[in-house]
């Protein structure tokens, strides 16, 4: 019992010392950083020929015009449809595949090599082949996004399974749990932080896959806005979808982090990150 009392005393002194210093909240630091970056870009961007570069206020004007004409809305819709499906498919198939490759010796030996190779596969070079198989439309876009994002998810899940402490599995064994139950009740929850890290990494790859697909198949969506405005030397408009995609990736990352804190709260608590 004295240990608990000690632990509580420690946490009290911890809050007291941090209250004295009153550090800036994280969001305020991030906001200040963004404001500084935008201000610098605005100041220096104005002195550059508008074909070679742009600056925030010009991009904001271009954004407003794209949005008002309805072009942006329909481009966003065209892009997001294959994105959501390809990315969701990558999660639904990548996680179980990673669990199997990591969890079974035979599956690891038989399939692991394809996962490792697939991760490094130069997908852009395969796009023409994918077009031959799947045509120029919706399916090929889903396929490119899926192939870009499934491997980081799978590899992370796999690495997570390999990192599960042997003794935790022995706890399951000591209670005569069958392998399937050990996989579901012990390996899966222990792997969850790795799975979420893989899903996060895959966001960036899925966005890149989406733009690649729109460049090399039917030119459509946000990718089309980029290409068309670049061809017209309208650099400000070209930046609009690029920035939208970056903001979208940040938003998705935040959302995944939020989901992770909901379904795996113990992880942040163990690491001591719950105090922030």
């Amino acid at each position: 019992m004295t240990e608990v009392a000690n632990a509580e005393r420690k946490s009290i002194t911890h809050t007291a010392s941090s209250a004295e210093r009153r550090p800036w909240p994280r969001w305020a630091i991030t906001l200040a950083s963004i404001i500084c970056a935008l201000a610098l870009w605005e100041i220096f961007g104005r002195n550059i020929n508008p074909v070679f570069g742009s600056y925030p206020s010009a991009i904001a004007v271009a954004f407003w015009e794209l949005a008002r004409s309805g072009q942006l809305g329909s481009a966003l819709y065209d892009s997001l449809r294959p994105f959501v499906i390809g990315y969701a498919l990558a999660i639904v198939l990548g996680v179980p595949l990673g669990l199997i490759v990591g969890g079974s010796r035979a599956a690891g030996a038989a399939l692991g090599i394809y996962v490792t190779a697939g991760y490094a596969m130069p997908l852009v070079a395969l796009v023409p082949l994918l077009i031959l198989w799947l045509g120029l439309g919706f399916a090929v876009k889903v396929a490119v996004i899926f192939l870009m994002s499934v491997f980081p998810i799978c590899i992370n899940t796999w690495a997570g399974v390999m990192a599960v402490p042997k003794t935790l599995i022995e706890v399951g064994k000591s209670f005569v749990a069958p392998n399937a139950v050990i996989l579901r009740r012990i390996v899966l929850p222990a792997t969850l932080p790795y799975i979420m890290a893989g899903i996060r990494l895959a966001v960036g790859r899925a966005v890149v896959g989406m733009v690649i697909a729109e460049f090399f198949t039917t030119i459509s969506g946000l990718g089309a806005v980029i290409i068309n405005s670049a061809n017209n030397f309208d650099t400000a408009t070209m930046f609009v979808p690029i920035i939208i995609l970056m903001v979208m990736a940040i938003g998705l990352n935040w959302l995944i982090g939020w989901v992770e804190r909901r379904i795996a709260p113990w992880q942040a608590e163990i690491a001591g990150r719950d105090r922030e």
Partner: peptide, 11 residues
């Protein structure tokens, strides 16, 4: 079995 470091499931 009682394990050396308890080995409770952290979740």
């Amino acid at each position: 079995m009682v394990f050396q470091h308890a080995e409770l499931l952290p979740w």
